[in-house]
Every structure is written in structure tokens, then in C-alpha cells.
Design a protein around this nucleic acid. Structure first.
Length: 349
DNA sequence: AACGCGGGGTG
DNA sequence: CACCCAGCGTT
């Protein structure tokens, strides 16, 4: 039996039962695919449930308030996905008469939909013969054929795109694509794959050459940099000062507290001496440490955050445009990033 | 071709 | 600690 037929047979027996597999509605498929970009199924699942319930149709999503969408996205990361999702929904309403496209060449026009997502939507919702190419597919194919080409280069991408489309089962692209991804996620895992019980154990190249752990090949990127965030907790009565982050950095448009950032650690005393602090507050401010330094790790930076309660909030002098007092009871309406809302959860109210 | 963009799981 | 996850957009 062919590779694809055996894979599909494995899938029929072992594949996961996931909520978005019970429909061919391209809107629902799209919703799941955006949420699952660079995100584990278990992590994205609760978000998918909330979004599909809150916004059952593309019209619902298009007419939603963007801040509500970001609020629902809170904690999932890669927040531009949420913003692009809203843009895409409005584009479907305005440019596609409210009918969610299924053709590869159409869906790929939507912001946030790249080659992978377009292949997934067009194959799963319309059975178009386009092979998906994600982390799972790279891994399965590189091991099966022993392809020692770096997957995160244009050359590697080209080779694997061609290979993936050769292997695709043109009779059943929808099932095949989901099969190879489940297979990668459940059997041909990055660490400790279960080669002993694998249906391809006889012919797979990687275990024969003892290269399972080595494949797929990947060119290394840059390491992490350190950043030091010093947050000011400014509370007056039942309100707290919040700040909206700007563009061109992490957590674009999300809310946090007013802060200053440095490239090196800073003592409480040094914060008082900082020019920006002096700009924000009149001379004698009194800071009180709130908890220990929190290390917040992103894939490309290590953030060390320290929170300071401002004991005399009336010392606040300058108010930036991006700053606003917010009622404590309304805090949950603002989309915050993880570092901030986990701090709020344990320290405020 | 390289880089920035989150948060969480794994060994 | 390094690596990876149903990747995409910008430069």
C-alpha cells in the first residue's frame, strides 16, 4: 500500500477527535487554523471554543469591536493574529460578499493567511489538492526520506513543498493533510518519537541511520536578549493608571502599567534618579517593592520585571497620552499581556 | 535571507 | 537550559 493510504489508515484508527473536524464551514476551519499557528492543540482549544461560541459567523466577527477580540485573545500570544483576524473578517464581508472563500488563491489574500493556512483551508473545507507544510510535515518527511536540508531556508522550503505535494493523496487531500499532522504530533514527535511501534518502521530512513534526533535540520537563529522592565503601580481611590503599549515592539496595543525600561538591572534608588522617572513625578516620590523580580521568558527575549507601588500617587506630574486612569472593576475589559494580567490576578483587588 | 512576534510544553 | 509548536508579515 502507498505511503498516503497507510497514513490515512493510521489516522482513521488513531487520529484525534477535534471540534473543528466536525464541520466543513471554511470560517470555522479558518478560525481553528489561525488559533493553532505556532500553538499546540491543547493550548488553543479553549480559545477556539470561546471564539466559535462568541462569534459563530464571519459577520459576527467582522462587526465585533477589535478590543473585544483582543480581550478574548488575551494570553494566547502572537497578538497580531487577533488583529489580522478582525481585518480578514471585515475583508470577507466587504470583498467576498460575506461568503468565506475556500479556494487557495482567494483565502491567501486574507491577512494572516499564508501558504500553510491557505493549503489547510482549501484542502479541508473544499478538498483542493494542496499539501500543507507545517512543523509536523517537515519532521515526518525529513525523517522518512532522510532529507538533510535546512528546513528554514528558501531552498529547504522549496524542496519540502514539492515533496509534500508528491506525497499528497489527491483522492482525499482533506483527510491526508490532517493525517500527516496528527501523525507528526502523536507518533513522529520531536523528542522521543515512538519508532518501535511506527507503521513506517521498515522503510523510514532516519532510524536506520540513527538520525531520528537530528532531523529535521534547522539553521540556528539569534539568541535571546535581556530587558529590564520597572513598573509603577499608581492607584488613586478605586482607579489605577494603565498604559497602552505602542507599535514596533512586543505586545503591541496591549495594556500594562506605566514603566521605564533599561538594558541593565536597576536598583530602586537608581529608578528614582532616572530622568524618565523625574519627568513623570514631582520630586519626592516613595516607592514600595511589590514582590520579587518576575522573569518572563519569550522565545527571543528574557524580560525581568519588577513592580513598585507608588505610595504617594498625587506626585504624578506628567501624564502621557497613552496613559489613563481605569476603574479597578473595569480592568478585565482591557486586553493585557500575560505578564500584567497574571500580576493583577495575584496582587490587585 | 533575516528578523520579530508569545506563551507553554518537553527532555 | 535548548528546542519546538496546525506560521506570518516586514524589511
Amino acid at each position: 500500500m502507498s505511503f498516503s493510504k497507510r497514513l490515512i489508515a493510521w489516522y482513521d484508527q488513531h487520529g484525534r477527535d477535534l471540534p473543528w473536524r466536525h464541520t466543513q464551514d471554511p470560517y470555522i476551519i479558518w478560525l481553528s487554523e489561525i488559533i493553532l499557528q505556532q500553538t499546540r492543540v491543547e493550548q488553543g482549544m479553549p480559545y477556539f471554543m470561546r471564539f466559535s461560541e462568541q462569534y459563530p459567523t464571519v459577520q459576527d466577527l467582522a462587526s465585533a469591536d477589535e478590543d473585544d477580540i483582543l480581550n478574548l485573545w488575551q494570553g494566547l500570544g502572537y497578538y497580531s493574529r487577533g488583529r489580522n483576524m478582525h481585518k480578514a473578517a471585515r475583508m470577507v464581508v466587504s470583498d467576498f460578499a460575506g461568503i468565506f472563500p475556500t479556494a487557495y488563491d482567494e483565502v491567501i489574500k486574507l491577512p494572516g493567511v499564508g501558504e500553510y493556512t491557505a493549503a489547510a483551508i482549501s484542502s479541508i473545507s473544499a478538498n483542493q489538492a494542496k499539501a500543507v507544510l507545517d512543523g509536523n510535515v517537515f519532521r515526518v518527511l525529513s525523517r522518512y526520506f532522510g532529507v538533510e536540508v535546512e528546513i528554514n531556508t528558501p531552498a529547504g522550503k522549496k524542496i519540502f513543498t514539492e515533496l509534500a505535494n508528491e506525497m499528497l493523496d489527491a483522492d482525499d487531500p482533506a483527510r491526508y493533510n490532517q493525517a500527516i499532522m496528527d501523525f507528526g504530533a502523536m507518533q513522529c514527535k520531536p523528542k522521543s518519537p515512538t519508532c518501535g511501534s511506527c507503521i513506517f518502521n521498515q522503510e523510514c530512513v532516519a532510524p536506520k541511520e540513527d538520525k531520528v534526533h537530528l532531523l529535521p535540520l534547522k539553521k540556528k537563529g539569534k539568541g535571546s536578549r535581556n530587558r529590564y522592565f520597572h513598573y509603577f503601580i499608581i492607584e488613586e481611590d478605586d482607579k489605577i493608571m494603565m498604559s497602552r503599549r505602542g507599535e514596533g515592539d512586543v505586545w503591541q496595543n496591549l495594556y500594562e502599567f506605566p514603566m521605564i525600561e533599561t538594558t541593565e538591572p536597576l536598583s530602586g534608588l537608581d529608578i528614582l534618579k532616572d530622568e524618565r522617572t523625574k519627568e513623570y513625578f514631582s520630586e519626592d516620590i516613595s516607592l514600595e517593592l511589590k514582590g520579587n523580580v518576575i522573569k518572563h521568558i519569550l522565545s527571543h527575549q528574557n524580560i525581568y520585571a519588577q513592580f513598585y507601588k507608588v505610595n504617594n500617587p498625587s506626585a504624578l506630574k506628567l501624564k502621557k497620552k497613552s496613559w489613563n486612569y481605569v476603574f479597578l472593576k473595569d480592568l478585565n475589559k482591557l486586553a493585557q499581556h500575560k505578564l500584567i494580567f497574571s500580576f493583577i490576578e495575584t496582587n490587585i483587588s
